[in-house]
Computed example of a mutant assay.
Amino acid sequence: MKYVISLVLAVAMAASAFASPGAHGPNGEHLDGPAGTASTGTAPRVETFSEAFELVGQLSGGELSVMIDRYETNEPVLNGQLEVEYKGVKAAAKFHPDMGDYAIDDEKFLKALATPGKHALLFTFIAGEESDLLEGTLEVTAPAAAVHQHTSAWKWLALGGALALSITVLMWLRRNKKNKVTI
């Protein structure tokens, strides 16, 4: 009976090697890549600042979402007007008061930004009597589906070892059952 328990434990350990999150963060991003490299699971971002404003934008969820703060105080700048230009194409952002961000959802503009590469963006921002031009680069890596692989030699080795152990234990139990050895 104790050998059956050992068999069950061996199979459970092998299964857990496949079910565990491994080297992934909470959003599926790879944590086991070389330090300082962009993760393929991370949404493309742009960050820039001027003397007056700082801007952080993220390309995800079918939009370019942009947060704008005052550079000196980090105070959010709400209800302004934002326009983004890329290769001569301009798109106006809509302010979302519930999220405090400025979002661009123009399909043609987003399709151009979604292509892999470095995209130089020019942001024109107007808030009351203040206005500013901010330049930033949005870097988009290759599509995640093209580079994302979940094969690991250690996982296959663990599965193979558990399978070999299971077969060995089953053969031993079968042989001892024929010899009528009591456990």
Score class of each variant (00 low, 15 high):
G136D: 03
P143C: 00
K180M: 10
G128H: 07
A15N: 02
T42V: 15
L110S: 09
A112M: 15
A35Q: 12
G161R: 09
I68Q: 03
W156P: 03
I5D: 09
G41C: 08
A92D: 13
I68Y: 02
A162P: 00
L82A: 01
G128C: 13
V169F: 05
F18S: 06
P34L: 15
G25P: 01
T37K: 02
A92L: 12
R175C: 00
R45K: 15
H30M: 09
T48N: 02
L173F: 02
G160M: 06
A10C: 11
G33N: 08
A164E: 00
P34H: 10
I68A: 02
S39C: 12
K118C: 00
A114Y: 00
G88W: 02
P76F: 11
I126P: 01
G41N: 06
T151N: 08
P143F: 10
L31Y: 00
V56F: 13
V147H: 08
G33H: 07
P21M: 12
I167A: 15
V89A: 15
W172Q: 10
T137P: 03
A127L: 06
G117Y: 10
D132I: 10
E83H: 13
R70T: 07
M67C: 08
E135I: 07
T182A: 08
T40Q: 13
L163W: 04
L55I: 03
E130H: 04
G28C: 07
E54P: 04
V169Y: 03
D132V: 14
L78Y: 15
A144K: 02
G36M: 12
A38E: 11
E139R: 04
I183L: 14
F125G: 04
L173V: 07
T73G: 02
L31D: 01
L82N: 01
N179P: 01
P34S: 13
L59M: 07
L55P: 02
E139K: 04
A93G: 10
A127D: 14
V84P: 00
K177T: 11
I126L: 03
G128M: 12
S16Q: 08
L138M: 12
A38V: 14
L159C: 12
F95D: 04
L82E: 05
I183S: 10
S152C: 13
T151I: 11
A145H: 03
G128F: 11
V8K: 03
M171R: 05
L122C: 05
L9Q: 04
S6H: 08
G25C: 03
A17N: 10
Y71C: 05
P44Q: 03
I68K: 04
E107S: 06
A120I: 08
G160T: 13
L110W: 08
N179Y: 04
I126N: 05
D98M: 09
G25F: 06
G100Y: 14
R174W: 14
H150F: 14
H30S: 10
